[in-house]
Lab assay of single mutants.
Amino acid sequence: TGYYDVLGVKPDASDNELKKAYRKMALKFHPDKNPDGAEQFKQISQAYEVLSDEKKRQIYDQ
């Protein structure tokens, strides 16, 4: 599964769309709200870390 799929956004998503999707998913799977969501929360955080950084995103998109 790709990072875009993890966040539920298209590859041409804007920074604002990425942030909005990340916040929505992070709230849904945060371990405090969803004890079984810890692994998914890590994936969401990693996806956002890469896609929100312009240089990392360019490398990922290659």
Rank of each mutant, 00 (worst) to 15 (best):
L7I: 01
Y4P: 03
K55F: 11
D12I: 05
A21K: 02
P31R: 06
K55I: 10
L7V: 01
G8K: 06
E17M: 06
P11G: 06
N34E: 03
K10T: 09
A38R: 09
G8W: 03
S52P: 02
E54S: 15
I59M: 11
Y4E: 00
S52Q: 07
Q58V: 10
K56V: 04
D15W: 15
Y48W: 12
E54V: 14
A47N: 00
F29D: 00
R57Q: 05
Q43L: 15
L27H: 08
G8F: 04
A47K: 02
K24H: 10
L7W: 02
D61A: 06
A47S: 03
A21W: 05
K42T: 07
Y3N: 05
V6N: 01
K20N: 12
N34L: 05
A13K: 00
M25K: 08
P11F: 12
I44L: 07
N34A: 04
A47M: 00
L51D: 00
Q46S: 06
I59L: 12
A21T: 00
T1P: 12
S45H: 12
K42D: 06
P31K: 09
L18W: 00
L27N: 12
D32F: 08
M25Q: 07
Q43P: 02
E39N: 07
Q40C: 15
F41P: 00
G8C: 11
Y4F: 07
Q40G: 06
E17P: 00
K19I: 09
E49H: 12
Q43R: 13
K42H: 09
K10Q: 08
F29P: 00
S14D: 11
P31I: 07
I59N: 09
K55L: 08
K24E: 14
D61F: 04
K20S: 13
P35W: 04
K33Y: 14
A47W: 06
K33E: 05
V9Y: 01
D53S: 07
Y48P: 01
Y60I: 03
E17F: 01
K20E: 15
P31M: 07
Q46P: 01
Q40W: 13
H30V: 02
G8H: 04
A47T: 00
Y22E: 00
L18E: 00
V6S: 04
Q43C: 14
Y3K: 00
K19E: 13
D36G: 12
Q46C: 12
Y60C: 05
V50W: 07
K56I: 04
A47C: 04
D15A: 15
K28M: 10
G37D: 10
E54L: 13
E17W: 03
P11W: 11
D15E: 12
N16C: 15
Y3F: 11
Q40M: 15
K24N: 12
Q58Y: 12
I59Y: 10
I59P: 03
Y22W: 07
S52A: 09
V6I: 15
A21G: 05
D12G: 12
D15G: 11
F41G: 00
A26D: 00
M25N: 04
Q62D: 07
G8Q: 06
K55W: 07
F41K: 00
Y48N: 03
K55M: 10
A47E: 01
F41Y: 11
D53I: 05
Q58M: 12
D53M: 06
P11H: 08
Q58R: 14
A26M: 14
Q40L: 14
S45W: 13
K28C: 12
E39A: 09
V6A: 04
G2F: 15
P35N: 05
P11T: 08
S45C: 14
Q43N: 08
K20P: 00
K24R: 13
A21E: 00
D36E: 12
L18H: 02
E39K: 09
D36S: 10
D12P: 03
K33A: 09
I44T: 02
Q58G: 07
Y22R: 01
E17A: 07
F29G: 01
M25E: 04
N16K: 13
G2V: 07
D5C: 14
Y3L: 13
D61V: 02
K42C: 10
A47V: 06
K19G: 06
Y4T: 01
D32I: 08
V9A: 04
E39L: 10
K10N: 09
N16L: 15
L18K: 00
V9T: 04
Q40Y: 13
L18V: 09
L27Y: 08
A21N: 01
A26G: 04
D12R: 03
Y60N: 05
D12C: 15
K24I: 12
D53E: 05
Y3C: 13
D12E: 06
G37W: 13
E17Y: 02
Q40I: 14
I44N: 01
G8V: 02
D32E: 10
D5Q: 12
G2Y: 15
P11R: 11
A21Q: 04
Q46R: 12
A26P: 00
P35T: 05
P35D: 04
M25R: 04
Y4K: 00
Y22D: 00
R57M: 04
V9Q: 00
Y4I: 00
R23E: 15
Y22C: 07
D32A: 10
K33T: 14
K42Q: 08
R57G: 02
K28N: 08
P35R: 05
L18T: 01
S14H: 03
K28D: 05
D36V: 07
L18I: 15
A38M: 09
Y60E: 02
F41D: 01
K55H: 11
D36P: 02
N16A: 15
L27V: 08
K20F: 10
Y48S: 03
A21L: 05
Y4M: 01
Q62G: 08
A47D: 02
S45M: 14
I59D: 10
A38S: 08
N16M: 15
K33G: 07
D12N: 11
N34C: 11
S52G: 08
L7S: 00
V6D: 03
S14G: 07
Q40T: 09
D53A: 07
K20I: 15
N16H: 14
V6L: 15
K56N: 07
T1V: 15
Y3I: 04
P35M: 06
A47H: 01
L7R: 00
R23G: 07
D15T: 14
N34Q: 07
Y4W: 04
A26W: 15
Y22P: 00
T1N: 11
K20M: 14
K10P: 11
D15C: 15
A13W: 01
K56R: 13
K24F: 10
P11C: 14
S52I: 13
K28Y: 11
D5W: 11
N16R: 14
Q43M: 15
N34W: 08
E49R: 14
Q40V: 12
G37M: 11
K33R: 13
L7G: 00
F41I: 03
L7F: 03
Y22M: 06
G37S: 10
N34I: 06
A47Q: 01
A13M: 00
E17N: 00
L7A: 00
F29W: 08
S45R: 15
K55T: 12
A26T: 08
Q40A: 10
P11Q: 09
H30K: 07
Q40D: 07
D61W: 05
T1F: 15
L27F: 09
P11K: 09
K55P: 04
R57Y: 04
D5I: 07
Y48G: 03
D32K: 10
E54D: 09
V50L: 06
S14R: 05
K24P: 00
A13D: 03
K24C: 14
T1S: 10
V50S: 03
F29L: 04
K42I: 09
D53N: 11
K28A: 10
Y48D: 02
E49V: 06
D61P: 06
H30Q: 07
N16I: 14
T1D: 07
S14Q: 03
K33F: 14
K24L: 13
V50I: 13
A38K: 08
K42L: 11
K28Q: 10
Y60W: 03
G2M: 11
S52Y: 05
K10I: 03
G2N: 15
L27W: 11
Q46D: 11
D5E: 13
E39V: 07
R57N: 03
G37F: 15
I44Y: 04
L51A: 01
D5A: 14
D12W: 14
A47P: 01
F29T: 03
K10H: 10
Q46K: 13
S52L: 09
P35F: 05
K42W: 10
S45Y: 10
F29I: 04
H30I: 05
M25W: 07
P35S: 05
Y48V: 01
L51Q: 01
D32V: 07
Q62E: 09
S14N: 09
S45G: 05
G2I: 10
Y48R: 02
D15R: 14
M25V: 03
E39T: 10
G37L: 11
N34D: 09
R23L: 15
I59A: 13
K24A: 12
Q43G: 04
N16P: 06
Q43H: 08
Y22K: 00
K33H: 13
Q43E: 10
